[in-house]
Simulated scan of single mutants.
Amino acid sequence: MADHATPNLPARDFLKAERFYAKLGFRASFRSGHWLILKNGGVSMEFFPWPDLDPAENSHGCCIRLDDLHAMVAQASAAGVPEARTGIPRLVPPQRDISGLTIAYLVDPDGNLLRLVQNPPEKGPEK
């Protein structure tokens, strides 16, 4: 297995987190009373319990780099995540960032901020 990192995010209720992310194509690969791992293709996210978390005060987040950002955004929209600049949960549509990357923002029901970043196209060999 290649080296990799996975975000560790808080969840007030694992079952509710699992249901939310299932609508985005994630499935549980591990579940216990103290840890939840969700996977969707090559993306893996881990959750730890924080039952008294205030979503409005949550400062946890991560970047998820995607080959098809627009498919994930469409899936979030189809799942009923509102397109908005405020509120929890919410989806901020993709836009070109000052970095040159295209990024959308998804805030889950626990207030975790997921930066959804479009992977740049792979460049072929130099000629």
Score class of each variant (00 low, 15 high):
K39R: 15
K39E: 15
K39T: 08
K39M: 04
N40V: 05
G41E: 11
G41Y: 13
G41W: 12
G42N: 14
G42K: 15
G42E: 15
V43P: 03
S44Q: 14
S44I: 10
S44Y: 10
S44W: 10
S44E: 15
M45W: 13
M45Q: 12
E46D: 13
E46R: 06
F47P: 01
F47T: 02
F48N: 13
F48I: 01
P49I: 02
P49A: 00
P49D: 01
P49Q: 01
P49K: 03
W50C: 14
W50H: 14
P51V: 00
D52G: 02
D52K: 13
D52Y: 07
L53I: 13
D54L: 14
P55T: 07
P55A: 11
A56C: 01
E57N: 11
N58Y: 06
N58A: 08
N58V: 08
N58Q: 11
S59H: 12
H60L: 00
H60Y: 09
G61L: 05
G61H: 04
G61I: 06
G61E: 02
G61T: 09
C62K: 12
C63Y: 15
C63E: 15
I64A: 07
I64Y: 04
L66R: 08
D67V: 05
D67M: 05
D67A: 10
D67H: 08
D68Q: 11
D68T: 05
L69A: 00
L69C: 00
H70A: 00
A71R: 12
A71T: 14
A71M: 07
M72P: 00
M72K: 05
M72F: 08
V73N: 01
V73H: 02
V73P: 08
V73I: 03
V73S: 00
A74C: 04
A74F: 08
A74T: 13
A74G: 08
A74Q: 13
Q75S: 07
A76S: 07
A76E: 07
S77P: 04
S77G: 08
A78W: 02
A78K: 11
A79N: 04
A79E: 01
G80D: 04
V81E: 02
V81R: 10
V81C: 05
V81W: 06
P82Y: 02
P82W: 08
